[in-house]
Amino acid sequence: MDSIMTNRNDFWWLSPLIIVIAGIIAGGYLTWAAFQGEFFEWGPYLSPVYSSPYVPSWWKLSPAFLLLWIPAGFRITCYYGRKTYYRAVFADPLACGVEEPYRKKYKGESKFPFILQNIHRYFLYFALILLVLHWTELILSVFYNGSLYFGMGTLIILLDTLALSFYVFGCHSLRHIVGGKTRCFSCDGCPKKAKISHGIWKKVSLFNTFHNRWFWISLFSVGVADLYIRLLAMGILGSDPHIIL
């Protein structure tokens, strides 16, 4: 008999299941952390979830929400992110070769609301600004009270900032902007410019190859960095192992 859903007999359901579980854990924790509005800084450290350099006096919500729309929007409209939730959440399709309900009015990303995915490039511009903020906060945390402070938190925030950088630098829209949009790198007659633009495009393409991995690594690294600082601020972790130069 021909199966209604699929004739696949491998573990095709495992990948969407893992993605849903990982998404609930990471998304759930980060949402909870954003709503807390406290225990987000300790000593030299500021949680990456709360990376706004300025909180206006009239702002009544958690300071996390000042900038959290940037990474949220960037990830929701991310080409890899889209693939992930179209499959695991919308079952559109759940896995390759697995049937889904036939919809005569299927419009994909050609009509509202999913046509809005085309604004991904705007979220990229803001994400690049946010990345500068993350690096600035990391450097400021090292220059603490007139000395150089290197703690376990510095290492965790460094790894998180690197993961976020690798994720953003592999963005498909960035790959398009830095060279993908061109038909020909060498055709304007300037070999030096062609070499540089092609070189940048190749580097972004290299990051792009691992975009899916950095999507998940950076999602969890933000949570780990926030959790570490939160545990320090709450006094659950007694101290931050460090050296001062």
């Binding site: 693939k83 179209y86 050609s110």
Partner: peptide, 9 residues
């Protein structure tokens, strides 16, 4: 091309 929802199958 807008109908493609890039699920990479």
């Amino acid at each position: 091309i807008g109908l493609c929802n890039i699920t990479k199958c």
